[in-house]
Simulated scan of single mutants.
Amino acid sequence: MLKSIYILGIRGVPAKHGGFETFAEKLSLHLVSNGWKVTVYCQEDSGEHIRESVWNGVHRIHIPVTNQGALGTIIFDWKATRHALSQDGLFLTLGYNTAVFNFMQRVKGQKNIINMDGIEWRRDKWGIVAKTWFWLNERAGCWIGNHLVADHPRIKDHLATRVRRDKITMIPYGGDDVSSADASLLAPYGVEPSQFSVIIARPEPENSFLEMVKAFSRKPRHHKLVVLGNFSPDSNAYHREVMNAASDEVIFPGAIYDAPIVQALRYFCRFYLHGHRVGGTNPSLVEALGAGCAVVAHDNHFNRWVAGPDAVYFKDEVACAELFDHILMDESAIERMKSASLVRFNERFTWSQVLKEYEELLLQWYPSN
């Protein structure tokens, strides 16, 4: 009999929205190829009835939700969890943002593994109500989940203040090995290989956009900085501040979701700048390692474990500016950093490693009857 697993907590597959969706797609296809029956709950913005479909051997249950934003996500998770109560097999919930709903599964005796993601309630962008909701759900997820996955050793340490350590398995996020890219895709952005550096992230204060842009813009660099992100300067004061601080060597092309273009920007950049201050194993940083990028990152224990000792780190705007001053044109340092990124990537972050570890964990927890 096929082993059945149900994946909750994401918008659906194929991936269109972010790191968890990409992971779910990779894991689903891996498990299907190894003989599992995989079902993924998918959020739909239209329709009146739940429907089912199959995508590349992955069963999908489409649940329509008319509400948008955070409320729509909460309603979707509620409906998906209720639907899952009638299913048999193993359950994997990605994220703890609505973990209180998983209490229904625990009461019924379903085995549910929860990937606890990052420490969401510490993020600067959330108000007190949202932070309280995330804090409560983090606690709930720790208690309700039969087993927990942490994507970073420091996330495991954090969760171990809530539950015993043997209830937590550390498995990081994975990434693709990008050994080539199409340089012609750079032309629309007016940059050439190695003549630019890049930032790829959500433009939020906790991701150090302002510090990095101001550091770069302190003086002429004879170099371009491409800043990817969905900027709305007319309605967002922080976005406006970042763009106003930029020199004419900074390019804001907006958010880019075309994977080959993003791969080309990573592969051909001189430096990949990563300003995240909170979170666990960040998918974008892992993808930069897989593309062999020379990494300049905010100095914290999350980034240091992922990028390793051969990346360079900054604490603030002044330190970031000094890095630009000293290493921007240091070819030997750049080549050393690029090689180290690939070594670190192959040590811990290839999809083959990550998916193998997940399947081993799922087999350990698969219901015996």
Results as ranks from 00 to 15, higher is better:
Gly109Ala: 12
Arg60Lys: 15
Phe314Gly: 03
Gly118Lys: 02
Met170Lys: 04
Tyr41Glu: 05
Lys167Ile: 05
Ala255Gln: 14
Arg82Glu: 14
Leu31Gln: 07
Glu138Asp: 11
Asp182Ile: 01
Asn282Trp: 04
Lys26Trp: 00
Ser368Asp: 03
Glu204Gln: 12
Ile74Asp: 08
Gly35Val: 05
Arg60Ala: 04
Val54Tyr: 09
Trp121Tyr: 15
Cys320Pro: 03
Gln110Glu: 04
Asn67Thr: 13
Phe314Met: 05
Thr350Asp: 01
Met1Gln: 04
Ile50Cys: 05
Gln353Pro: 01
Ser208Leu: 04
Gly174Tyr: 07
Gly280Arg: 06
Asp166His: 05
Tyr267Ile: 00
Phe271Ser: 02
Asp182Phe: 00
Gly109Val: 12
Arg348Phe: 09
Phe23Pro: 01
Ile256Arg: 06
Met104Lys: 08
Trp78Ser: 08
Ile128Pro: 00
Ala311Trp: 05
Val13His: 08
Ser4Pro: 04
Trp365Val: 00
Leu323Asn: 01
Ser332Pro: 00
His274Phe: 14
Thr132Lys: 11
Tyr173Gly: 00
Gly127His: 07
Ile171Thr: 01
Asn303Ser: 10
Glu44Ile: 03
Val318Arg: 03
Ser197Met: 11
Gly95Gln: 04
Gly290Pro: 07
Gly118Glu: 03
His223Val: 13
Tyr173Ile: 08
Asp182Tyr: 02
Thr39Met: 06
Cys142Thr: 13
His62Arg: 10
Glu138Ala: 08
Leu363His: 00
Ser235Lys: 13
Asp77Met: 15
Arg139Leu: 14
Asn282Val: 00
Val129Phe: 13
Gly290His: 10
His239Thr: 05
Ile200Gln: 05
Ala297Ser: 15
Gly35Lys: 10
Val40Asp: 10
Gly47Tyr: 10
Phe209Glu: 02
Ser235Pro: 00
Thr73Ala: 12
Asp151Gln: 01
Asn97Gly: 09
Asn282Ala: 09
Glu287Val: 01
Arg154Asp: 04
Arg221Asn: 07
Trp143Tyr: 03
Gly89Tyr: 11
Cys293Tyr: 02
Asp176Gln: 13
His17Ile: 10
Gly12Trp: 08
Tyr366Pro: 12
Lys131Asn: 11
Leu92Ile: 09
Cys269Asn: 10
Lys79Ala: 11
Ala15Ser: 14
Glu192Gly: 10
Ile171Phe: 06
Leu362Glu: 06
Arg82His: 13
Thr161Ala: 11
Leu328Phe: 09
Glu360Gln: 09
Gly127Met: 08
Ser352Gly: 00
His59Gln: 07
His147Arg: 02
Pro309Ala: 04
Gly174Met: 09
Lys37Gln: 14
Gly19Asp: 09
Asn137His: 12
Asn146Cys: 03
Glu206Gln: 13
Ser208Val: 05
Ala319Asp: 12
Gly19Gln: 03
Leu85Met: 14
Ser53Phe: 12
Glu331Pro: 05
Asp45Cys: 00
Asp248Pro: 08
Lys79Ile: 06
Ser179Pro: 00
Tyr173Gln: 09
Pro205His: 11
Thr98Leu: 09
Arg277Gln: 15
Pro203Val: 07
Ser232Gly: 06
Thr161Leu: 10
Asp88Pro: 02
His49Lys: 15
Ala80Gln: 03
Pro283Leu: 07
Ile10Leu: 10
Ile63Tyr: 09
Ala259His: 03
Asn230Ala: 14
His222Ile: 00
His83Ser: 11
Phe349Leu: 07
Val286Tyr: 06
Lys167Trp: 09
Ala245Ser: 15
Ala297Asp: 07
Gly292Phe: 07
